[in-house]
């Protein structure tokens, strides 16, 4: 069997793939966080809870109403987005003029309540959600077996992330978004309905988290804790990438997933902490993050 640095290539590729899958979730979630922070000035601690709610909505849809995976991919992000819009209208909109801390505390409280509610009704042991038939099995690439579902997750998340990047950086709507992020008052003085855009941005950001949740449901167990386990790493990713860069969030998310995967192969003990070690190093060298602009 072929080996690289004494590691069988099968194992290396397997972990690399798993790293890419994790990285896809990091990328999607940190992208949403970055967009929300840019527009709303709020550090959305409820992001992990929205991801978890996405996975649960998919599970509930299937279990209670027979709504399958493919429909969930569309309906769940819409539902989570609507929940986000309601949260923005009823709570967040009153906090924009205040310090970041208030938004962080409010969304942290929301996260605890949402998680607590799911834990109360469904326990914390995790519920199974099976991979849709079309995506079961694996493809033999010669040097490794590629599970179809993992490949699917990576492709979907890449497409969604790149589409988001394209819309924000290359279209008229994106120009409105960038302008409103940079100078909301002036942008509104040009006749652009900034409050509406802010509301939809929050809805879109959490919808991305919800979509992440649907994608994650078959890959991991559906559990009330899945969000809070992930969100801490995602915040580290955002810090490393730097706020405010869309492409930065995507690239940082993916590459940290890969770094984590490779660490599992070479020094498994450090795999849970490597992201934070990278964070410390990046903060020492570039306090604004890899892609962030220093003020």
């Amino acid at each position: 069997m072929t080996e690289i640095f004494g590691i069988p290539i099968q194992a290396l590729m397997g972990q690399l793939m798993l790293g890419l899958v994790n990285g896809s979730f990091y990328a999607m979630l940190s992208l949403g966080l970055a967009v929300i922070f840019g527009m709303l000035n709020i550090i959305n601690f409820a992001h992990g809870a929205m991801y978890m709610a996405g996975a649960f909505f998919a599970w509930m849809g299937l279990t209670y109403w027979g709504i399958g995976y493919w429909w969930s991919l569309i309906l769940v992000p819409l539902t989570v987005g609507v929940v986000g819009v309601i949260i923005e209208r009823t709570m967040l909109q009153w906090l924009y003029q205040l310090d970041h801390l208030y938004g962080l505390l409010l969304t942290f409280g929301l996260a605890l309540m949402i998680e607590g509610a799911f834990r109360y009704f469904y326990g914390s042991s995790g519920l199974p959600y099976s991979i849709p038939e079309e995506l079961t099995g694996a493809i033999n690439l010669g040097f490794m077996f590629l599970p179809k579902y993992r490949a699917w997750v990576v492709v979907v998340s890449l497409v969604v992330c790149l589409a988001t990047w394209f819309v924000i950086e290359k279209t008229k709507l994106g120009a409105y978004l960038r302008a409103a992020t940079e100078n909301p008052r002036l942008t509104q003085a040009f006749g652009i309905n900034v409050p509406l855009m802010v509301m939809l941005t929050y809805g879109f950001g959490v919808a991305l988290a919800g979509l992440g949740g649907v994608l994650a449901a078959p890959a991991y167990a559906v559990s009330p804790l899945m969000g809070s386990n992930l969100i801490i790493v995602v915040f580290a990713v955002v810090v490393i990438g730097g706020m405010g860069s869309i492409m930065g969030s995507i690239l940082t998310g993916l590459s940290l997933g890969v770094i984590e995967g490779l660490t599992k192969v070479f020094y498994a003990e450090a795999s849970n902490t490597v992201v934070f070690v990278v964070m410390v190093i990046v903060l020492m060298i570039r306090p604004a993050g890899l892609f962030g602009k220093e003020k």
């Binding site: 120009a175 960038r178 302008a179 992020t181 940079e182 100078n183 002036l186 003085a189």
Partner: peptide, 10 residues
């Protein structure tokens, strides 16, 4: 506006 308000991200 007095500060011209040119967007650096555009």
């Amino acid at each position: 506006p007095e500060e011209r308000g040119i967007y650096s991200s555009l």
